[in-house]
Amino acid sequence: MATKRTTASKAATHPAPAEPAKCQPCGGTGTVAVTVRVGRERRPVGQQDGLCLNCFGTGTNPKS
């Protein structure tokens, strides 16, 4: 009697790629709040969205 051959599934030989880690300062959005200052005394009047300088707007952690 011959032995039964089995094949390995693709999931077992090739694991799914891991999702990249999110950037900590922006939370994965790529933007951070920047305070807008006006006037002679440079008083804060509000906030606007600015580019995250840690990940440069990609939203992924550059160290991973």
Rank of each mutant, 00 (worst) to 15 (best):
A12G: 05
S9C: 12
R40G: 07
P44G: 08
K4T: 15
T58K: 06
P44K: 08
P25T: 03
N61L: 04
A18P: 09
T7E: 09
G39A: 10
Q47F: 03
P20W: 02
S9A: 14
V45E: 04
N61D: 09
E19L: 11
T7V: 12
T6A: 05
L53T: 15
T3N: 03
T3Y: 02
P17Q: 13
A16Q: 12
G39W: 08
P44H: 05
R37C: 04
V34W: 06
A16E: 14
V32F: 01
G59Q: 02
E41Y: 02
R37S: 07
C55A: 04
K10Y: 06
S9G: 15
K63Q: 08
T7H: 06
R40M: 11
Q48I: 00
K10I: 00
G28S: 02
G50V: 00
K10E: 12
R40C: 07
Q24S: 09
P15A: 14
T29R: 03
C52G: 01
A18N: 15
P17A: 15
P44E: 06
P25S: 02
G30D: 06
E41K: 09
G50S: 11
K4A: 06
G46H: 13
T29F: 03
S64N: 11
C26K: 00
L53N: 13
R37D: 01
A12K: 14
A18D: 14
V34F: 07
T35G: 07
L51W: 00
H14K: 15
C52M: 04
R40V: 12
Q48N: 02
R42N: 13
Q24A: 14
E19F: 07
V36H: 12
T13F: 08
T7L: 10
A33D: 11
K10C: 04
E41S: 07
P44W: 01
Q48E: 09
S64K: 09
G57M: 03
G46Y: 13
G27M: 00
R40D: 05
A33L: 15
V45K: 06
G27S: 04
R43T: 15
P15Y: 08
T29V: 13
